[in-house]
């Protein structure tokens, strides 16, 4: 259980598995996971606040609060909640 957000799968878990790269390390995901879901499922957070050094794990989950920014290779800065994981995708957190 990650020590930050305790995101928990409750349904729809029978999906094919994918791998992507999160800060250079392999991260598993299920097909259809957003980068936010996959990152938070593994580590409990998706980025570090620039101002208080606290971890963040998304807030609105609908593309409005901008609290889940990550950098995706080839695409630049994106909202993790609005980006579906693709096999081999390379994601960097702040």
């Amino acid at each position: 259980m990650p020590k930050y957000m305790n995101l928990t799968r409750v349904s729809g878990s029978q999906r094919p598995r994918l791998d992507f790269e999160l800060d250079g390390a392999r991260c598993g995901a299920l097909e259809g996971d957003t980068v936010l879901t996959a990152a938070v499922m593994r580590d409990g957070y998706v980025r570090r606040s620039e101002f208080d050094q606290g971890m963040r794990a998304g807030f609105c989950w609908m593309g409005a609060c901008q609290d889940c920014w990550v950098t995706i290779e080839g695409r630049g800065r994106q909202r993790a909640c609005a980006t579906v994981v693709e096999q081999g995708m390379r994601v960097k957190r702040s």
Partner: peptide, 14 residues
Amino acid sequence: TLPGVTTLGGAQIA
């Protein structure tokens, strides 16, 4: 601002 705090809408979309 703790990880694990979301909006109601966010919790629903999740």
